[in-house]
């Protein structure tokens, strides 16, 4: 179970991690500035298991992979949005973060308590007692997520080939 951190439309990668922090020596250092333009307290208050909820076009803008990486560093494993910008969607999967596209994003408010069951595809908003189901990612993409990301998946596949 985790708390929802609710954001609006068109949260671009400059909002997730502003470009001036890309020069910092590590993802750990960058992560301290995650979502800073939106919420300066985000990085210090986000708890492992909390869930980010966006609306339209989450992750638009630059292809910078530091965006999902700083989120992952803080413990983000799932993001729910009405829809995702394409590059961010891919980068999230490639780094083992599950992007869930679902209409329920409209009905989740900041600080709602959310429970997600990855086996059944159930999303429960315990604050409002509403339940939804999402279509689980299948096939090749599911294999990447199961492996923990694209690098791990390719390494495992190479191992099988040789």
């Amino acid at each position: 179970m985790g708390q929802a951190w609710k954001f609006g439309d068109n949260i671009d990668t400059d909002q997730i991690i502003p470009s001036q922090y890309l020069v910092l020596p590590s993802i750990k250092d960058m992560a301290r500035h995650t979502m800073e333009p939106q919420n300066p307290d985000f990085a210090t208050q986000f708890k492992n298991g909390d869930i980010i909820v966006g609306e339209v076009n989450f992750g638009c803008g630059s292809s910078r992979e530091q965006a999902p990486l700083v989120l992952k560093e803080l413990g983000v494993r799932i993001i729910i949005a009405l829809d995702f910008a394409r590059i961010f969607f891919r980068n999230a999967i490639n780094n083992g973060i599950l992007p869930i596209e679902h209409e329920c994003a409209k009905e989740i408010s900041d600080k709602d308590d959310i429970v997600i069951d990855l086996k059944t595809g159930e999303i429960v908003n315990q604050t409002t007692q509403k339940t939804w189901y999402f279509n689980k990612i299948q096939g090749y993409l599911a294999d990447i997520l199961d492996a923990g990301g694209l690098a791990a998946y390719i390494a495992s596949r190479k191992g099988k080939q040789t």
Binding site: S63, R90, G149
Partner: peptide, 12 residues
């Protein structure tokens, strides 16, 4: 456009 992990995979 793609990200860095994906590009590493493409290079490989």
């Amino acid at each position: 456009g793609i990200g860095t992990t994906e590009m590493a995979a493409v290079l490989a």
